[in-house]
Design a protein around this nucleic acid. Structure first.
Lengths: 343, 343
DNA sequence: TTGAAAGCGTTACCAC
DNA sequence: GTGGTAACGCTTTCAA
């Protein structure tokens, strides 16, 4: 190891000096501009490698107007779904050569300074995955014409969105449960004001009513296992005659919490109560849950979202759009799937 | 809504023009330089607000040499521990006014371009939470003198680290299990080459041997629930006389997988087998796991890690250091805690 | 094919 | 107190 006091970073100018050419020549050579002669290009490339040259992306931004950064706003991490989503985002963004400025993660409100950073660092666009309806980042983007795509939530006022067809997912599960002969249905709802949860609930309820059954029991839930657990406990506490025989959690994690509570209270799932969820998180597929669910097409959603962002960053005056992708039903052991006596 | 074709961003120069002062004055006024007279400062502040001025952090970086960015490298997200850690990092970094450049998340190797981005965006420092021993980011940082702190792993060659005292955690759990009368012990190990897992295993084994018991059975594990589940199945398949009566997973998620497998095979936890883990993730505390574990002091670890990073970014020639924080034992229902016949 | 110079937005230094 | 000017590192005209 050398022991230079200040390992000064090589710059285009320093390389130019050492190569005896102009800075513009170095800049062009390094970006493989076809106008530069092969010899010069090779010489500069060698020099750059030797000096350990790394272009300064920030300086480049200043002149190009593009930062290559996209702001990322993540939802509450206590739902594993968001962790899975994040992993998708990170790998797909990297594959496209974008860097992620991680602005927020969690349920709380975004800090003032963080919202400001979104603008100060001149992100090219913003990806918002928080399910909450009131997203600070969204309005900041809209006010400042920063291209914005929301994933897993609908755009209320501005911006585009890509999301699972939540209404259809709710309907699918209601249909599934009714066909299996369930008659007393329930829904564990999401956080109030959360679009995904509302839509899933609505799809479910609509389908049940359309079939002529009484409206499902709505159990207040939230976004966490604990909330689902509480809802499950309140179900278990009902007299057997009033207790629903099937329940949908508006997210897998809620459904999992409910299963744990029901079983903890001595009830059998799916023997006494069928439980289904929506999201398709990995944990829900495993023992002891084996949850029947509608899986969101996560990879495709992110790919689509980044496509949309790219189009808007490109400068084209593309109108806002909302894309709905259909989820896929996964039948597993948490729900009885045939009417009693048919098996 | 106005309909300006190009909502040109206000700059220091444009504000200076409109205020009839020099750019340097605007710059000073905006940063509350005491030399600027109150009237001028007020006038400029008003103008800036009206124009919706946002300083360009990238341009500022160019002259100051500080980007305010810290690179973040996250481990495999299928372990909820990393999600919890991320949330801590995001909120604590924001509180200190740092922005996070999310470079990597997951188990796979870091892409070439991503490693380059670390340098190109001139991150002030790097926080690495991946448990894998071979971290590409670490060597990039070291070679380029980018301050580096690793969390939840020890620094091998360069850089500083803050970590839980994994050895002590393993010892604590071995002691706990032996005191409860367990005699046939086992460990579900982590990914090979992962320092945290190795240390936890070593602490456990050391303590068991010191007590004169036979060496614990080492079951190959990994980093996921599935790996723990497989290990649990192999335990359950052993003849009753050879089956361990207590097992430690080197992480909570492994222990949870093992519990699910053991119970799935008809065994009782903790009736037939006691199970303990390490990490203290939220999911492990809940029904049906109620896992006895050693919780990592996550909040303190991150705070300490950021402190260390700050000190090194400050420019002070601080020598590399490794900080070990002690975890805290949480006794729950997954392990029998008294010798049979003592209750 | 290459060079010179201007400019991106900000801050720091030196005058006044 | 405030104004000029240079500088950060890069790209991009416009000339040659």
């Amino acid at each position: 190891m050398e022991d230079m006091p200040h390992p000064v970073r090589a710059t285009v100018a320093s390389l130019a000096r050492r190569a005896g050419v102009a800075a513009s020549t170095v800049s062009r050579a390094l970006r493989d501009d076809p106008r530069i002669s092969p010899e010069v290009r090779a010489r500069i490339a060698a020099l750059a490698a030797e000096a350990g040259y790394t272009p300064n992306a920030l300086a480049r931004t200043l002149v190009s107007g593009r930062s290559g950064l996209i702001g990322l706003v993540l939802g509450p991490m206590d739902n594993p779904f968001y962790a899975e989503m994040m992993q998708q985002i990170v790998s797909q963004a990297a594959a496209r050569g974008w860097r992620l400025l991680l602005l927020h993660a969690g349920d709380g409100p975004m800090e003032e300074a963080t919202a400001a950073a979104l603008l100060q660092y001149r992100v090219d666009g913003c990806l918002i995955t928080s399910a909450g309806l009131s997203s600070r980042a969204a309005s900041v983007c809209a006010e400042n014409r920063v291209p914005l795509v929301m994933v897993n939530r609908v755009a209320r006022e501005h911006g585009s969105a890509v999301s699972c067809d939540n209404l259809a997912a709710g309907e699918t599960l209601a249909e599934l449960l009714m066909q299996a002969g369930h008659r007393r249905l329930a829904v564990i709802t999401g956080n109030p004001g959360t679009s995904t949860g509302l839509e899933r609930t609505e799809g479910f309820v609509r389908r049940v009513l359309a079939a002529g059954l009484p409206a499902p029991l709505l159990l207040p839930g939230g976004a966490s296992h604990a909330a689902g657990y509480a809802a499950g406990q309140s179900m278990a506490a009902l007299p057997a005659g009033e207790r629903p025989d099937a329940v949908m959690g508006v997210s897998d994690i809620l459904a999992m919490g409910a299963m744990d509570a029901l079983r903890g209270a001595g009830l059998s799932v799916p023997g006494d109560v069928s439980v289904v969820g929506i999201d398709g998180i990995a944990a829900a597929g495993r023992v002891p849950y084996r949850l029947t669910t509608v899986a969101q097409p996560l990879e495709a959603m992110i790919a689509r979202g980044l496509d949309m962002l790219l189009a808007r960053i490109g400068g084209a005056q593309v109108p806002d759009e909302v894309v709905l992708l259909r989820g896929s039903l996964i039948r597993r052991a948490s729900a009885r799937l045939v009417a009693p006596g048919q098996g």
